[in-house]
Simulated scan of single mutants.
Amino acid sequence: MHYIVVLFIILFSSNAAFAKQIEVVVGWTKPPYVISEQDSGFELELVRAILLEMGHDMAPIYVPFGRTASIMKKGGMDIGLTLNPGHDIDPAILTDAYVYYQNVAVSRTDRNFEINEIQDLLGHSVIAFQTAISVLGEEFKNTLAHQKNYMELAQQDRQVSLLLLGSVDVVVLDRNIFEYVKHQLPVEKQHDTKIHELFPVSAYSAAISDEQLRNQFNEVLALFIKDGRYQSLLDKFGLFNFIEDQPMQPAKKLN
């Protein structure tokens, strides 16, 4: 009996030694992807579950979305979420894509705007999400970066409110975020809106400097996608599975 107790203590101590609290830099609320006031949302729950599978706990640290890359570059944090090579980050530390956004332009139907390509945004007041100029491609950047009636906001609920109030012509943000925020507003503030599909689906990764942690993250993410846990979380938050539409990529080499 004494031997069993000692063995249990040794095993418990060994597991505890490898387990750690992982500090994860997360952009402020982007429901249904990140709901900071509830420590919830698709991205948070997925990454929390992946880390738990790896034997770790997650400690989210909320920052303005545009600051995640710069914070990761300074070091000291374990993981930064919702990043891709369009951000100012070393692509070598990015994981496999774990979430896909479908950025769109949205206008009020009663404005009757004809917006079929990025150039059609010229002459309109446009509010986009933070870092949009960096991640939505060269054409978007060259068209709008120096326009006086273009701006970026971290608070995407405010983007939607400004559009519905008629204070801005067009908002540029993820389709799921727009639909989620719009339907949280009172009925009297609702207006019919038109979606303009100007951008391809965007893949986002996590930035993890520690190679071993990054490789383990990729392995568990692949397992979640294969065994259905990834799809279950998508269903919980009403998100489309864009992974099924992506071309197969060769697995990253694990060193």
Rank of each mutant, 00 (worst) to 15 (best):
156 Q>H: 12
190 Q>A: 11
153 L>I: 08
200 P>L: 10
186 P>T: 07
215 N>V: 08
156 Q>C: 07
154 A>N: 12
172 V>H: 02
194 K>I: 10
160 V>G: 00
153 L>S: 07
207 A>W: 02
166 G>H: 08
153 L>E: 06
198 L>R: 00
162 L>F: 08
168 V>R: 06
205 S>Y: 05
212 Q>H: 13
167 S>C: 06
202 S>F: 12
159 Q>N: 15
190 Q>F: 09
169 D>S: 09
157 D>E: 15
155 Q>P: 00
178 F>K: 01
199 F>K: 00
166 G>Q: 11
192 D>A: 13
187 V>T: 10
209 S>L: 05
152 E>M: 02
208 I>E: 03
177 I>E: 15
192 D>N: 12
200 P>T: 06
172 V>R: 00
184 Q>P: 06
191 H>M: 04
212 Q>M: 11
163 L>E: 03
208 I>L: 05
198 L>D: 01
190 Q>T: 04
205 S>T: 07
179 E>I: 09
208 I>R: 00
180 Y>R: 04
175 R>P: 00
181 V>Q: 11
151 M>F: 09
197 E>P: 07
159 Q>Y: 02
197 E>L: 12
201 V>D: 02
184 Q>T: 15
205 S>F: 03
164 L>S: 03
150 Y>H: 12
209 S>A: 14
199 F>A: 07
213 L>S: 10
189 K>T: 08
191 H>D: 03
186 P>W: 11
194 K>Y: 03
194 K>N: 08
155 Q>W: 04
155 Q>L: 08
200 P>V: 06
212 Q>D: 14
151 M>S: 15
182 K>L: 12
176 N>Q: 14
153 L>Q: 06
177 I>H: 05
200 P>H: 11
161 S>Q: 15
195 I>W: 13
194 K>E: 12
213 L>D: 05
214 R>M: 11
171 V>N: 02
212 Q>R: 14
179 E>W: 07
210 D>M: 07
197 E>R: 14
154 A>F: 06
200 P>S: 12
197 E>G: 05
170 V>A: 04
166 G>P: 09
174 D>F: 10
162 L>Q: 10
152 E>A: 06
170 V>R: 02
165 L>W: 09
211 E>K: 15
188 E>V: 08
174 D>Y: 09
183 H>S: 10
164 L>G: 02
187 V>I: 07
193 T>Y: 15
151 M>H: 08
172 V>N: 02
153 L>W: 09
189 K>N: 14
159 Q>R: 01
173 L>Q: 15
204 Y>N: 09
189 K>I: 05
176 N>F: 13
201 V>E: 03
189 K>V: 04
189 K>C: 05
195 I>K: 05
150 Y>K: 08
182 K>F: 12
175 R>H: 13
156 Q>R: 14
178 F>H: 01
211 E>N: 13
183 H>D: 14
179 E>N: 14
214 R>H: 09
166 G>I: 07
180 Y>H: 13
